[in-house]
Design a protein around this nucleic acid. Structure first.
Lengths: 227, 227
DNA sequence: CGACGATTTGACGTCTATCAATAGGTGTGG
DNA sequence: CCACACCTATTGATAGACGTCAAATCGTCG
């Protein structure tokens, strides 16, 4: 992995609430910025986890592969998200930029040093990890027990809550990414979306199929959490 | 949830390596022991997470339910395992004793106090959470992308590594538990096990179907990680 | 001993995957 | 700016893996 060594001027930021003193901490650390082109790998599974990343702009997928190429995306990371924090010598996922993506890099070493001296900061790292764990736990339920329609509905609602939303949901990822996140195929994802469109629950905006208008979030919620 | 308030005499223990100073820490905390009968709930999802648990003997399942009753077991906890640590006001799973199970209880409050004063201990909590996260991440891959045979093979290998093993793998859980852990039905689990038995890869010991002899772990590994 | 739960096994059904064809979008190079 | 290649997405036909329904066996426990 390449990275530039230009030091960024420090800047206040308005990222996740949990990371309230994150910026404060990061300010005390050496960090730089780097931009990845669409499709480029940020780090690979089992590579040394020397850096932690925070997305300035763009989107990232993190995934595992089986030897025969089947892929499971564990999470999407969007603007403001922190990823790559492993509390482990090596990364457990491969991550790639879904679109052109700029990240801030923080030396893992710096965080650890801070955590050892500052118990409050260590708890902060714990909170980040707990957030990831909660997400993974919910996703296990989705992958193990939900139907295709329920998965897609859950995905749309998740993204609706996370993407800086005007009135259209602008998805950065392809149908393949969505399918590999939901444990489905692209065809199934496409079919479910078409049916939802047919039912008037959502509509497509513009000529691309990645701009989605959610007309009936209540119905989506009912789909996601069946009785 | 009921619990006795009898204070246990402190005792050295030989539990997980990650928890090396766990016992040390626990010794500094108020804690007691309690025994749950087979099938009894230890805590429910969304209940206040006031205690953390360590299994002295027995086995526990922790799961989520969908409103219509579909169940996803996120993890099994065996002797020595610590569970119920949420870093969160409320539990995110329901847990039940699979067989008669004795646990040590530690007040969450005690751990937090310790973590605030002692950065090393906070990192220790982080390690526990990271272990859970790693497991959940691997399980997402299993649930999202593996076939029934691969899931069962992975399950057997996981338990083989975790159950205090003589030469037979004595499973505490039912086929239903296994199925709900693997995102399958009991019938599918049963069929896969039968096929593995037919292929000579495993055998059943005694009259119960929960004592399994793994004759060919290498083959199981190939099943789990296909080329 | 009898009832109930756990497990296995078979027959059949269905949801999602696979295979395949088409169309649309994007980017590149002449 | 158009032609071409390639990627993305949709849609239909078909297949297959796993689920559902059902019955029988076996073990456990009151």
């Amino acid at each position: 992995m390449l990275m530039r060594d230009a030091v960024e001027p420090l800047s206040r930021s308005r990222y996740t609430a949990e990371a309230s003193d994150w910026d404060h901490a990061a300010a005390a650390c050496y960090f730089s910025e780097f931009t990845y082109k669409k499709g480029n790998e940020i780090y690979g599974e089992r590579e040394p986890a020397d850096y932690v990343y925070q997305i300035v702009s763009g989107a990232v997928r993190s995934y595992k592969l089986l030897p025969d190429g089947r892929r499971q995306i564990g999470a999407f990371h969007l603007e403001g998200d922190i990823f790559g924090l492993e509390n482990d010598r090596r990364h457990r996922f491969t991550t790639e930029a879904i679109v052109e993506t700029t990240v801030k890099l923080i030396r893992r070493h710096s965080l650890e040093a801070l955590a050892e001296k500052n118990a409050g900061f260590a708890l902060n790292l714990l909170t980040l990890t707990t957030d990831n764990l909660r997400h993974a736990e919910n996703h296990m339920l989705l992958l193990g027990r939900k139907t295709a329609a329920e998965r897609v509905a859950a995905f749309l609602l998740e993204m609706d809550g996370r993407v800086a939303t005007t009135d259209v949901l602008a998805l950065p990822m392809t149908r393949r990414d969505i399918a590999d996140y939901l444990g489905l195929t692209i065809e199934t994802v496409s079919r479910v979306l078409s049916r939802l469109e047919g039912a008037g629950i959502l509509g497509f905006s513009g000529r691309t199929q990645r701009q989605i208008v959610l007309n009936d979030r209540e119905q989506l919620r009912r789909l996601d959490q069946p009785n």
